[in-house]
Computed example of a mutant assay.
Amino acid sequence: MSSSRNAWATASDDVLLGQCEIDTYRASGPGGQKRNKTSSAVRLRHLPSGLIVIAEESRSQHENKAKALVRLRKACYLQIREEILPETVSSLPEWSTALNSEGRIHLGRKNPAFWAAAGVALDALDVAKARVSDAAAWLKVSTANLIQFMEEDPKLWQQVNVLRARHNQKPLKSS
């Protein structure tokens, strides 16, 4: 897959930050007096993709910038679709490393490879016009295994249903 998405998502922090406009601001809400006196909240605008992420939980601007970078990488996989060929999607390294020896998806969302595999799954679902059974067949996994994988993260599940709506399919219900 010739992928700007993968290049952005796997770039070093410095390279990725160099592609962003960085805004700092004072976050409102709980956190004590210090929170309202320092501009610790961070908004990253990734110029090549147009993605915008924020982090404002911490009173440390440095920590919020690190959290925003993590969110930007996830957003790349969730929001940016790559064109794929159904007959070759299962052999993409981002996907093939997600499968165990029995051919089942074995990644939890804390695994660093989870988001790259999620991006490929969403790409396949998009090409399949949001038909999960077709996407699963192209990815060489069972429909149930693919659904279970996509349910692993709420934002991933939400994006699945965004794709389904875009392709005039009914939303999937969580089990």
Results as ranks from 00 to 15, higher is better:
residue 3 S to E: 13
residue 4 S to I: 14
residue 7 A to Y: 13
residue 8 W to H: 14
residue 9 A to K: 04
residue 9 A to I: 03
residue 10 T to Q: 09
residue 11 A to S: 15
residue 12 S to A: 15
residue 12 S to Y: 00
residue 14 D to K: 14
residue 14 D to C: 03
residue 14 D to Y: 10
residue 18 G to S: 15
residue 19 Q to R: 12
residue 19 Q to G: 02
residue 24 T to S: 13
residue 24 T to V: 12
residue 33 Q to D: 13
residue 33 Q to A: 14
residue 34 K to P: 03
residue 35 R to P: 02
residue 36 N to T: 00
residue 36 N to K: 02
residue 37 K to F: 01
residue 39 S to T: 09
residue 40 S to W: 03
residue 40 S to R: 01
residue 40 S to N: 07
residue 41 A to I: 07
residue 43 R to S: 06
residue 44 L to N: 03
residue 45 R to H: 06
residue 46 H to S: 13
residue 48 P to V: 00
residue 51 L to Q: 06
residue 51 L to D: 00
residue 52 I to K: 06
residue 52 I to S: 03
residue 52 I to G: 01
residue 52 I to L: 07
residue 53 V to T: 00
residue 53 V to S: 01
residue 53 V to A: 03
residue 53 V to C: 05
residue 55 A to V: 02
residue 55 A to N: 01
residue 57 E to G: 15
residue 57 E to R: 15
residue 57 E to S: 15
residue 58 S to W: 11
residue 58 S to A: 11
residue 59 R to H: 12
residue 60 S to R: 04
residue 60 S to A: 03
residue 60 S to K: 11
residue 62 H to L: 09
residue 62 H to A: 12
residue 62 H to I: 12
residue 64 N to E: 01
residue 65 K to N: 06
residue 66 A to F: 02
residue 70 V to T: 08
residue 70 V to L: 02
residue 71 R to G: 08
residue 71 R to V: 03
residue 72 L to E: 00
residue 73 R to I: 05
residue 74 K to S: 00
residue 74 K to G: 00
residue 74 K to E: 07
residue 76 C to V: 05
residue 77 Y to G: 03
residue 80 I to P: 00
residue 80 I to D: 06
residue 81 R to C: 03
residue 82 E to W: 01
residue 82 E to V: 04
residue 83 E to Y: 00
residue 83 E to G: 05
residue 83 E to A: 09
residue 84 I to C: 07
residue 84 I to K: 06
residue 85 L to V: 11
residue 89 V to K: 09
residue 89 V to M: 11
residue 90 S to G: 10
residue 91 S to T: 09
residue 92 L to W: 10
residue 92 L to F: 10
residue 93 P to M: 00
residue 94 E to T: 07
residue 94 E to A: 09
residue 97 T to C: 13
residue 98 A to E: 04
residue 98 A to W: 00
residue 98 A to K: 01
residue 99 L to W: 08
residue 101 S to P: 00
residue 101 S to K: 06
residue 101 S to H: 01
residue 102 E to H: 10
residue 103 G to S: 02
residue 103 G to E: 07
residue 104 R to I: 07
residue 105 I to W: 09
residue 106 H to M: 13
residue 107 L to A: 10
residue 111 N to V: 08
residue 112 P to D: 10
residue 113 A to C: 14
residue 114 F to A: 13
residue 114 F to E: 14
residue 115 W to R: 07
residue 115 W to A: 04
residue 117 A to E: 08
residue 118 A to W: 04
residue 118 A to K: 02
residue 119 G to D: 09
residue 119 G to H: 04
residue 119 G to R: 05
residue 119 G to L: 02
residue 121 A to K: 14
residue 121 A to G: 12
residue 122 L to M: 14
residue 123 D to M: 05
residue 125 L to Y: 15
residue 126 D to E: 13
residue 128 A to E: 14
residue 128 A to S: 12
residue 129 K to H: 14
residue 129 K to S: 08
residue 131 R to G: 08
residue 131 R to A: 14
residue 131 R to E: 15
residue 133 S to V: 10
residue 133 S to W: 07
residue 135 A to K: 02
residue 135 A to H: 07
residue 136 A to I: 04
residue 137 A to T: 12
residue 138 W to P: 12
residue 139 L to S: 02
residue 139 L to V: 05
residue 139 L to R: 05
residue 141 V to S: 11
residue 142 S to L: 09
residue 143 T to E: 15
residue 143 T to K: 12
residue 143 T to L: 07
residue 144 A to E: 06
residue 144 A to S: 12
residue 145 N to M: 08
